[in-house]
């Protein structure tokens, strides 16, 4: 089980790095610490969803915990309040 701390600002500039960091951990169960996230943009959201799909396909666990209030609120605004459960099409 590897823990990864997500940066405070997950905007367009963070998307590429986030993807690479996560890819490097492929194959292991990971926990994403979103406790400090202040802002998440659509592109980083994509990366997380893509990772979620990838880990599911690999049969590994990817958990997002804990979540900052801002992250919780923003995920809800994106229509995916709980990234840990299945999303529409996310596991498809």
């Amino acid at each position: 089980m590897t823990a990864v701390r997500l940066p405070a600002v997950l905007d367009i500039r963070a998307a590429g790095t986030l993807r690479e960091d996560l890819l490097a951990l492929r194959g292991s169960d990971i926990v994403l610490d979103g406790g400090e996230v202040e802002r998440i943009g659509g592109l980083c959201l994509q990366v997380l969803i893509s990772a979620k799909k990838t880990w599911a396909m690999d049969g590994k666990a990817l958990t997002l915990a804990p979540l900052s209030d801002a992250l919780t609120e923003q995920l809800a605004a994106y229509g995916c309040a709980d990234l840990n459960t299945d999303l529409v099409g996310a596991t498809g």
Partner: peptide, 24 residues
């Protein structure tokens, strides 16, 4: 009410991090 559609999101290894593939 906002509904996200992530069906266009590919696996992480082929994901282009700056392409938009989510829709709402």
């Amino acid at each position: 009410t906002v509904e996200i559609d992530a069906s266009g999101v590919p696996m992480l290894d082929v994901l282009e991090p700056e392409e938009g593939c989510l829709s709402w």
